[in-house]
Amino acid sequence: MLVERTWLYALAHHADLAVALRQHVALSAAAFVAAALVSLPLGVLAARSAAGRALVSIMTAVRVVPSLAVLAFMLPVLGLGFVPALVALFILACPPILINTDAGFRDLDPAVREAARGMGMRGWQLLTRVEAPLAAPVIIAGLRTAAVEVIASATLAAFIGAGGLGTFILDGLANNDARQLMLGAVSVAGLALGVEAAASIALTAAARPRAADATGLAVA
């Protein structure tokens, strides 16, 4: 039975699995954090300008390019290994974060913003106390999409020699070994689902106050 054979294979190669998992998480996390650091402030700025709108349109177009194509494109430019994989995943992660951050801020009711200014909030206070909390659900949804996409696409990094859980799939294909294929697929799926679940909890927490009318006075 495949599940049992995969389990036994994983036990026998747990050291390889640990290394691959660490590579996968490190690569994904590095790409995700870099993309968030660039795209969040860019998204905030984009929502305030016409140029930002154009940038967001370009990003929407970038999303259409398949992950594998981005990786393949990196190969002649940056060669093999961790860095080209990181750059490719960074490029993949930016659009969802940027697009959602822009949308989250752009869709805020202008009257809320004006009320906040009317209370005497300065720009930074307006951003941190009103705009960011209100846009948070949309932004977190973008971060979640980016995280899941990065984890799934990091599998392909094995093709350009960056390691990770994709190594098992690559080897499985080469050796025609179903156990290795299964181990790679299941561990990537598990990682992605775990991140998805964590993001969903964060999303629920961020949206809680405004969803409160549905639950009546439960919050009080």
């Binding site: 009711d109 009257a111 909390p133 209100l134 405004r210």
Partner: peptide, 9 residues
Amino acid sequence: IQQVGLFPH
């Protein structure tokens, strides 16, 4: 102000 004056969060 009317309506949206309070911050919902």
